[in-house]
Design a protein around this nucleic acid. Structure first.
Lengths: 252, 252
DNA sequence: TATTGACAACTGGTATGATGAGTAATAAGT
DNA sequence: ACTTATTACTCATCATACCAGTTGTCAATA
């Protein structure tokens, strides 16, 4: 029995409240950093119960759109907080599969190699110094797996920040939590640490020379190497990644 | 008075509840698609009030980690729903600036050109047919700005899906809502529609030939052209959008 | 028998009021 | 002037009640 009737959409009060506040922000009525009226005030203002309002605020808070502090109030977020970024891809990691892992590394490589290109193009003197310092500290920490892993992570982080594109930086931020995990794993092997440092030095050299193409190329090579190492890493245990032909996906 | 004491971190009950459920999912105790116990049950199970539990669920729901249906229950999300993706970059758009806009287009160009490369490498016969059909329908809709805009959007969407990388696809998903808006804006100009169709045909040709490098190159050129048109950097030519309007593009 | 429709038993959604707890400005005391 | 206690805000949590959507049961009816 097909009738031309559309399904009636029920918009919950909470949803409507969320949309309303978002619209206020988008329209500029509420500016970043600005404090929202108190819950009791808003509740009355919008004509909803406090429970409803709190749920709406909880949602907005979860999305990183507003920041709530006990005793102070609710504020429009001025910049994205990384805590919410971690959760962006959480559902994808909930169902772990080989394909997911491969996709993850591939995505990371694509974005980061582009980030390096931008970094090479735009890096300031200050960025360069910061990167150099990280590598120097890495060299000093060659025998300290944990510290080296942290610095390795920091290097990649700094590069994507120095790329000077807030979206690229935030996208890398979405992947960061998981990247960190793998880097710390890898840095347990002294060979990996040595090779990683060498690769980073090459990359930095290209960034210093502002050699965009080579910076990107070497980065891809480096990440490709990293991925291969990771797949061979814990061959004592059952490794989540197996076939070599899949690994070669990263070959250009 | 510096003492070696760390600040005591008080984790709110809500936060703890969120973390607990997330951990259950990450550990595999809760699998995607599975139904959570009812609110009343969970409330007692975790020893928190229903208010608190609901706030936790609201957060998880906002992040797209669980899906809640009135009268049925709460379920672990099986895949990421795009609705939550739209909000990822919302805070960035709240702070409207020219630099933000430029960064947005740049990021989109980088990711999409890589997506096109992957698409050219891996596209199936079915993908190719789907893309062809979209372009044929575009040609038929050359005089219908709204419809053409939708199809334009669809083309880019299908390409990033055919790239066969779930992360790339989802990242594009984060930007999609905003891309759509400006595509609809551009398609008001008949010149743009014509040029867009020609560019898409070239891109599709490269995808069909599996010419990875040229597919990426042409895409960049195409997107660059589009961006210039929008920002009126293309001096002399008529621009469909004033810069002020462009910034306001994201406010609705 | 097969369909219908009222109903009960779930589920989440909303409302209210009371109380706990953090923050910051102010008043009181030294 | 400095410190401390008060106070008046804020959000955080809890308990209870009731509204509303979904689903299956089962008796009444055609």
């Amino acid at each position: 029995m097909k009738v031309g009737l559309e399904k009636i959409k029920r918009v919950s009060v909470v949803e409507a409240t969320v949309s309303y506040i978002k619209k206020q922000i988008a329209d500029g009525a509420l500016k970043p950093g600005q404090q929202l009226p108190s819950e009791r005030t808003l509740q009355e203002l919008l004509g909803v119960s406090r429970f409803t309002l709190r749920e709406a605020l909880a949602r907005l808070s979860a999305l990183g759109i507003v920041e709530i502090t006990h005793g102070k109030g609710a504020f429009i977020a001025q910049e994205m907080n990384s805590s919410s970024l971690e959760d962006v891809f959480f559902p994808l990691f909930a169902n772990q599969s080989v394909q997911n892992l491969i996709d993850f590394f591939e995505a990371r490589m694509l974005i980061e190699s582009e980030a390096v290109r931008l970094c090479a193009k735009r890096r300031s003197r200050k960025d360069l110094d910061a990167l150099k310092e990280i590598l120097d500290r890495s060299e000093a920490a060659l025998e300290d797996p944990l510290k080296f892993g942290e610095l390795d992570f920091l290097f990649h982080n700094k590069v994507s920040q120095a790329a000077g594109n807030i979206f690229i930086d935030k996208m890398m931020g979405c992947l960061n939590e998981y990247i960190k995990k793998y880097l710390l794993m890898l840095s347990n092997n002294p060979e990996n640490r040595k090779r990683s440092l060498i690769n980073h030095r090459s990359i930095l050299e290209m960034i210093e020379k502002k050699d965009v193409d080579n910076a990107g190329r070497i980065t891809r090579k480096h990440l490709n190497q990293t991925f291969k190492m990771l797949t061979n890493f814990d061959n004592g245990k059952a490794t989540p990644v197996a076939p070599e032909d899949l690994i070669n996906l990263f070959s250009q």
